[in-house]
Design a protein around this nucleic acid. Sequence first.
DNA 1: ATGTCTTTGTGAACGCGTGCACAAAGATGG
DNA 2: CCATCTTTGTGCACGCGTTCACAAAGACAT
Lengths: 255, 255
Amino acid sequence: MASGRTHRPATRSRGIPEATVARLPLYLRALTGLSERSVPTVSSEELAAAAGVNSAKLRKDFSYLGSYGTRGVGYDVEYLVYQISRELGLTQDWPVVIVGIGNLGAALANYGGFASRGFRVAALIDADPAMAGKQVAGIAVQHSDGLEKIISDNGVSIGVITTPPSVAQQVCDRLVAAGVTSILNFAPTVLSVPDGVDVRKVDLSIELQILAFHEQRKAGEEAALNEAAALAAPVGRADSTDQGPDGDVPAVMPA
Amino acid sequence: MASGRTHRPATRSRGIPEATVARLPLYLRALTGLSERSVPTVSSEELAAAAGVNSAKLRKDFSYLGSYGTRGVGYDVEYLVYQISRELGLTQDWPVVIVGIGNLGAALANYGGFASRGFRVAALIDADPAMAGKQVAGIAVQHSDGLEKIISDNGVSIGVITTPPSVAQQVCDRLVAAGVTSILNFAPTVLSVPDGVDVRKVDLSIELQILAFHEQRKAGEEAALNEAAALAAPVGRADSTDQGPDGDVPAVMPA
DNA sequence: ATGTCTTTGTGAACGCGTGCACAAAGATGG
DNA sequence: CCATCTTTGTGCACGCGTTCACAAAGACAT
Ligand SMILES: NC(=O)c1ccc[n+]([C@@H]2O[C@H](COP(=O)([O-])OP(=O)(O)OC[C@H]3O[C@@H](n4cnc5c(N)ncnc54)[C@H](O)[C@@H]3O)[C@@H](O)[C@H]2O)c1
Ligand SMILES: NC(=O)c1ccc[n+]([C@@H]2O[C@H](COP(=O)([O-])OP(=O)(O)OC[C@H]3O[C@@H](n4cnc5c(N)ncnc54)[C@H](O)[C@@H]3O)[C@@H](O)[C@H]2O)c1
């Protein structure tokens, strides 16, 4: 998606659609909860409700993995946990490195949910010499000079970037050059990577802006409703680009 | 999507597709960068490259907002910044509350990028009496007893949940009852909310599992390639459910 | 063994999102 | 004022994802 000219099918690996892959962890979480309560089987309806999806969608998702259900009964919880875990690659251990141990990096390092599913924090890396040697979540922070060696020694293929955005691309480049092929990026930057490297981004700011959009829309609808109720006559101002409290549209944004 | 029977069109507000809304913040970020460097205009090609998207997609996205470009020239940067900001509702201030000031909540509170775009941390809320009164990021943490009053006093409509998953639903319910209509959830839980309330979730664990899936696929492909090169004869074991190092499929997951 | 009843697995239709390709618009130079 | 050239805005086709609806499969009771 970045510099790619080869147009790889991206995710139609051997059939499993990307949308399905993104939901498998959701199912797995729901199933784990059932497993802990020793529930032996679940119907697609029950499991779908627990995962917050449509039951037909869930069945179709599972159909990509194979026919693991029993008609008239449902799915065997333990068996399904195993199958999904295997499909997601969680039966093996994935060492990850976190680069940039600031507010967010430290929070992630302290996050217990990390280790719960095959992910192991192999190293914490920071460029600040003052950070080197400090213990965060029981792990000594290492200086970024040794990044390449750390990655190759531990066989790390997944990297998490929590540095300031200004250095995210160069950190990314070093990670990729050292052998990392999957990156989870928390910095608000568009990373470009060579083909064969996957990047996923988590962007708090974008999430908030999307919420704000819908929030504004909701407020606008309500206002329009009240307005319409108050004065039943149509307004007929300019064209259809009415946008609530804004009168006209200046050519330049105020400061 | 939760308890909804009314089947609201969800996001086709007055035409802007959800996928477009999700990209607007991306464009806005790229445009802000250009604005800071005093670039007066950009072509769709340049801006698309900066935002990491297809230029045709970008032009179509902008066409939903109106005809803000000039053919043969491109788009006026400042004007577009303003239009997108307005469309996203960023010309007004959005007070937000963060509930659950632990590792993650504190990191978010300290995050500078919050305030940069109309979002203001109105309050930090935690259930732990020991936290109450403590300063985090220059803001005093308040006990969750006062949650309802805080929200109504400040006109908060956006809430961020960073509590443990076990209490996320009840926190959510209180937020919604108090008037919050948009929630950003960091707890690994499926929240159910009434119609009219938007929920977005950020789930680190899911992101990592998706990366692990692709990582495993990449490793599998490589292995299959090597294997095919080594012995050119087809294997012909059982059915087509070959999955690399796993021999057979046990009916129950090992411990 | 046979019938009933539950639940899966999937064919088919539909809608959304993406990207190509091009006509129209307008700037720019002569 | 006209020609040329750049770049937008969009019609169109295609593929992916979602959902409905139902036949087939199998458990379970009799
Ligand atoms: N804190 C949040 O809640 C939050 C939310 C959303 C996004 N983000 C983004 O996450 C990133 C980190 O945020 P933060 O609040 O933790 O910032 P921070 O300043 O607290 O931490 C950044 C850390 O990265 C280290 N660093 C700088 N350059 C480095 C390099 N070249 N190699 C390795 N380490 C380096 C710094 O020493 C520092 O420890 C930022 O890009 C921020 O925009 C943070
Ligand atoms: N830390 C991470 O990097 C990370 C990553 C992904 C997801 N998460 C999720 O984010 C959430 C928070 O993680 P954390 O590491 O900050 O946990 P944490 O235990 O450090 O913080 C949780 C905070 O919530 C407060 N709390 C508990 N019940 C509450 C209630 N009813 N009302 C208000 N506050 C309450 C606790 O007092 C505590 O301060 C968890 O659900 C976790 O699974 C965290």
